[in-house]
């Protein structure tokens, strides 16, 4: 596979988007808006108070799936990683999922009667997926991420209270890792159901758009899961271990 050129702080942000339009939502997640003229990514990030190296690592890992800078990403504060992951959660639930839902709904309204049943089936399947994804993301937002932030704070303070100590012993990140099931499998099934087995529909364009959006969502979630599994979780495990050591040394 050809190695893709990686971006550096001096890359113009406009060039980055021209080279890889899939990065549009990623850049949006950092709170960057269009109209940045010929500014480099470093300039734009500095203006917005964004950590440019972190943004670059995310952009590059998204741009080239072979480039995955586990080690250097792990050096960034957990808070920064979590902020990014949370904003992707928002993007999925508030933007991407409703968008896909809208396509399916429109298709349901526009198919021939004999195909209506089939789209309804797809809709039901997607709703199941949606619910699973929502629960999964909510669990991360409400339980996993706060726990990681607690650990991060404890690391900064260099001390660990009893409550957190108990939690590390009984409900460490490993539990979450084990239950971290693959969110993409169902999306992949949905793709194949549409590509291979859905009888021809009248609204071809709608169906094509639907499929494209599913592919995009899938790619995005894949990158997201990578960051969680290969960066965040190993980082948290390391911190948990250190905190336990601190505790033992004190006793």
């Amino acid at each position: 596979m050809k190695k893709k050129l990686l971006f550096n702080p001096k890359s113009r942000l406009a060039d980055i988007i021209h080279l890889d339009y899939r990065l549009i939502p990623v850049i949006g997640r950092f709170g960057i808006e269009f109209g940045f003229g010929n500014k480099t990514i470093k300039e734009v990030c500095n203006n917005k108070g964004i950590n440019v190296w972190f943004a670059l690592e995310i952009i590059n890992s998204y741009h080239d799936s072979n480039y995955f800078p586990k080690k250097s990403l792990q050096n960034f504060p957990a808070k920064l990683i979590i902020e990014y992951l949370s904003s992707t959660h928002n993007y999925y639930l508030k933007v991407k999922i409703p968008e896909i839902q809208e396509y399916i709904d429109k298709m349901e309204q526009n198919v021939k009667p004999e195909n209506h049943k089939n789209i309804t089936l797809l809709n039901g399947f997607f709703n199941e997926y949606k619910e699973e994804l929502r629960l999964h993301l909510e669990n991360e937002d409400q339980h996993v991420f706060p726990y990681i932030l607690d650990i991060d704070n404890a690391m900064i303070r260099g001390e660990i209270d009893d409550e957190l100590y108990k939690k590390i012993l009984t409900d460490s990140i490993e539990n979450y890792e084990r239950s971290h099931d693959d969110a993409e499998v169902k999306l992949n099934d949905l793709k194949n159901l549409i590509i291979k087995f859905l009888p021809p529909v009248l609204c071809k364009e709608l169906c094509q758009n639907l499929l494209i959006e599913i592919f995009r969502l899938e790619a995005d979630i894949k990158n997201h899961t990578n960051i969680e599994d290969k960066v965040l979780i190993p980082k948290v495990k390391l911190m948990e271990k250190k905190l336990l050591e601190i505790r033992e040394n004190k006793l």
Binding site: L122, G124, F125, K186, N188, D189, N192, L193, F197
Partner: peptide, 13 residues
């Protein structure tokens, strides 16, 4: 053969 892994997906098929 189908490229469908989940039970829910197989049910829809």
């Amino acid at each position: 053969k189908l490229g469908i892994k989940t039970i829910a997906g197989l049910t829809v098929y």
